[in-house]
């Protein structure tokens, strides 16, 4: 099988080479153009955001020294005493952290329930009128576009300070965000069971209960868990505007330069978020996995 491959005719190979060069040049031109566009936008954004590279390079030492300052002076000789001094406020902080978690839980639950009620109206395949579908979608959009902390700012004035306000703000934002995701899940279902039930005389609600719910419930739960994780983070900063949770303590510590307190509270928040992150990820894999095997 030692057959030589006949080379292409010179004219043909020249034409091919030229076409290749043209294609490469076109791609390169497009890449350079997009890079230039990004660079121009970045410079414009830099002006808008008042970027001062000199200030950054001049003060970057502050950042590292800040990190150094917030770290506690732990010595091996007196590790128990040092730890006790670092976490002097542990009971109070732990209670506030618990409050933060409860806020996230309740916010996710209430928001999830609202999203559950609204999502069937926003799904194009189940909505009964096009106008209702359009309106529900717009409402969900407004709920999720306004950040939760803005809701919290307004609610704090209306309802007074406290964690209840944080929960309401989280719940409203969650309703918008989950409502969109839920309705997308509902739009992707297999419609045959729905048709079957409707044909055998089921009402709209019955069709949803027996044909739609079994298909979407595990995805709903998975998105709900994901949102819970996001809400734990969100609940952590609700205290910045007086809406409960551990944020208030952190704000006070940062503003008043209680250096070691900052690291103590931050570390607690980071650890909690990471634990919740891992736990929900495992749960979600199990939920989705059980869906796949069925």
């Amino acid at each position: 099988m030692n057959k030589r491959i006949a080379p292409l005719a010179p004219a043909r190979s020249e034409a091919l080479k030229a076409a290749y060069a043209r294609a490469v040049a076109a791609t390169r031109r497009r890449t350079i153009l997009s890079l230039v566009a990004i660079a121009v936008l970045a410079v414009a954004a830099g002006f808008a955001a008042e970027v001062k590279p000199l200030v950054l390079t001049g003060n970057i030492g502050n950042f590292t020294s800040y990190l150094g300052q917030i770290l506690p002076g732990l010595t091996l000789a007196n590790i128990r005493g040092d730890l006790a001094e670092w976490y002097w406020g542990l009971p109070k902080w732990a209670a506030l952290l618990g409050e933060t978690l409860l806020m996230a839980y309740l916010g996710t639950l209430l928001g999830g329930l609202a999203a559950f009620v609204l999502c069937f109206g926003a799904a194009a395949n189940l909505a009964r009128t096009r106008l209702g579908c359009f309106l529900t979608r717009r409402i969900l959009e407004v709920l999720r576009t306004v950040p939760e902390i803005v809701f919290a700012l307004i609610f704090v004035i209306a309802f007074g300070l406290g964690p209840m306000v944080g929960v309401m703000a989280l719940a409203i934002h969650t309703a918008g965000a989950l409502g969109k995701l839920f309705s997308e899940v509902v739009e992707n279902i297999d419609m045959k069971p729905v048709d079957g039930l409707t044909a055998s005389g089921a009402t709209h609600v019955e069709a949803i209960r027996f044909a739609v719910l079994p298909q979407v419930l595990s995805n709903f739960a998975s998105y709900g868990l994901l949102r819970f994780e996001i809400n734990v983070r969100g609940a952590g900063v609700m205290g910045f505007v007086g809406a409960g949770g551990i944020g208030q303590e952190l704000l006070v510590a940062i503003r008043n330069f209680y250096y070691t307190d900052v690291s103590a509270i931050l570390l607690m928040i980071i650890a909690t978020v990471m634990v919740i992150d891992l736990a929900t990820e495992r749960l979600r894999h199990r939920l989705i996995g059980s869906e796949g095997t069925r």
């Binding site: 001062k52 950054l56 902390i149 990471m274």
Partner: peptide
């Protein structure tokens, strides 16, 4: 994971200490 679990607002508070109040701290 550690960097991600600190909220944007907390990062903003930290950066304000470094570059002062203003949008630059927000971008960082």
């Amino acid at each position: 994971d550690v960097i991600r679990s600190v909220d944007v607002l907390i990062w903003a508070l930290i950066w304000i200490n470094v570059v002062g109040l203003g949008p630059f701290a927000g971008a960082l």
